[in-house]
Nucleic acid binder design. Structure first.
Lengths: 203, 203
DNA sequence: AATGGAAGTGAGTATTTACTTTCATTCGGG
DNA sequence: CCCGAATGAAAGTAAATACTCACTTCCATT
C-alpha cells in the first residue's frame, strides 16, 4: 500500500553509511570517527548500523571499495574517449582532481588507510586502485612515446610517479589550506608544468 | 663519583620521547600510538612520561617541532651552498628524500598531523614549515628565471606545487610499497622529469 | 650527613568506544 | 490477516586509554 517503504533495504543503508563516512571525513579526521557519530549522521541508532556491517572494519572496507571504484570508473571513462595519449593524461588528471574537489573527504580517507597495517582489506583495495592507476598512466606515456609526442628519453616509471605526485601535491596543499576547491583551480597550471617535462619539443 | 647519572634530565627525556615516537611511527600508525606504548619504548613508566609533558598534545607538538626543525635546517644548509638555483633545487630535493629515508616515520607523522583540526599547535608548526619550504622553492625558481636557465613562461607557484608533489609522490608510493629506501633510489629519476619541465631549452 | 627538589614508579580512575543484547515495530508472502 | 523475518531503538558491557596520585629513589648542595 505505502508508496515508500518506511525501512530501507540493507544495501541502501550500506550505501548511505559509506556516504556518511565520506561526508564526515570532509571536516573531521577519519581516524577519529566513531560508530556512534556515523550512525547519528545517518539518523540511525548505533545498534542498527551494526546490523548492516559485521564490524567497523567492514564499514571501512566498503568505504575503500567505493572510493576505489569511483576513481577508476571516472578516470577510465575520460581516458578512453580522449583523442590522443597526452589529452588522455590531462583528462584523467582533471577528472581526478574534480572528483576530489567534489568529495573533499576522499584524500583524508585514502591517506588514513595508508597509515594502517599493510594487511588490512581496506588498505589492499586502495593499494590495488593506485597500482592500476599508475599502470594506466604508464601505458599512456608509452603510447605517447611511440607516437613521437612524448620525449623518447623519458623514464615512464619516474614520470608516472611525478604524475601521481602532481595530484598528491595539489591535494596536500589544499588540505593544508583547508580548501579543496583550490586544488581544482590550480590543477590546469600544475598539469601544464608536468606536460612541459614530458613532451617532445617541437622540431 | 658516578660517571653517568642514573636519572636523565627533563630535556634528555623529552628528546628521547620524540625519538621514540619517530621510531615507532616507522612501523605503526602514529594515530594509534598510546602513551603507554611510547613510555614502554623509552623504558620508562607512563607516569614519568607525563612528568615531562603536561599532556599528549604537548608531546605531539614537540615531535612536530623536531620534524619541522630538522627539515628546514637540512634543506637550508644544502640550498645555500649550491652554485646555482637549479642545483639548489636538486640538492634540496635529494636532501629531503634522504632525511625521510633515514626516518621513515616522518611522512606518516606529517600526514597524520594534517588530518587533525586546523587549530592544533602541532599542525600549525607543520603548516608553517611547509609554507617556508614552498617559499624557498619559489625563490629559487624565480632566480633561475632571472638567470635565463628556467623557462621564462613558467608559473612559479604551479611549479612549486609540482615540486612538493614530486616529493609527496615519491613518499606516498614508497609508503604503499612499505619501503622508504625505494624513494631514495627513485628520487634522481623523478627530479630529472621535473627539471625537464622547468628548464629553458638550450637555444 | 642532612636536605630538598627533580625524576621515577605502579596502581588507580573517569571516560570513551566498539560491539551486544533485548525487545518493539514493520514488512511481505501465503 | 497472520507469521516469520527484517529493521530499528535503547540500554548495557568489556576493553582500552589519557591522565592522576601517593609514595620512592637519586643526587647536588650545604
Amino acid at each position: 500500500m505505502s508508496e515508500t517503504r518506511q525501512y530501507q533495504t540493507a544495501e541502501q543503508r550500506r550505501d548511505r553509511a559509506v556516504a556518511a563516512v565520506v561526508e564526515l571525513s570532509a571536516t573531521e579526521n577519519p581516524a577519529g570517527l566513531t560508530t556512534a557519530r556515523i550512525a547519528r549522521r545517518m539518523r540511525l541508532s548505533e545498534g542498527a548500523l551494526f546490523r548492516h556491517f559485521p564490524n567497523k572494519d567492514a564499514l571501512w572496507e566498503a568505504v575503500a571499495g567505493w572510493v576505489a571504484g569511483q576513481l577508476s570508473q571516472r578516470v577510465a571513462a575520460v581516458a578512453d574517449e580522449a583523442p590522443d595519449p597526452l589529452a588522455g593524461l590531462e583528462a584523467m588528471f582533471l577528472a581526478h582532481i574534480d572528483f576530489i574537489a567534489r568529495h573533499p573527504g576522499v584524500p583524508r580517507l585514502m591517506l588514513g588507510e595508508l597509515q594502517k597495517p599493510a594487511g588490512s582489506r581496506a588498505r589492499r583495495l586502495i593499494e590495488r586502485a593506485m597500482g592500476e592507476y599508475r599502470e594506466r598512466v604508464q601505458r599512456l606515456l608509452r603510447a605517447g612515446m611511440e607516437q613521437g609526442r612524448v620525449r623518447a628519453d623519458l623514464d615512464p616509471a619516474a614520470a608516472a610517479v611525478l604524475y601521481l605526485g602532481a595530484v598528491q601535491g595539489l591535494v596536500v596543499q589544499s588540505l593544508v589550506a583547508g580548501d579543496m576547491q583550490a586544488a581544482a583551480r590550480a590543477a590546469p597550471g600544475v598539469f601544464r608544468v608536468f606536460r612541459n617535462g614530458i613532451v617532445e619539443r617541437a622540431a
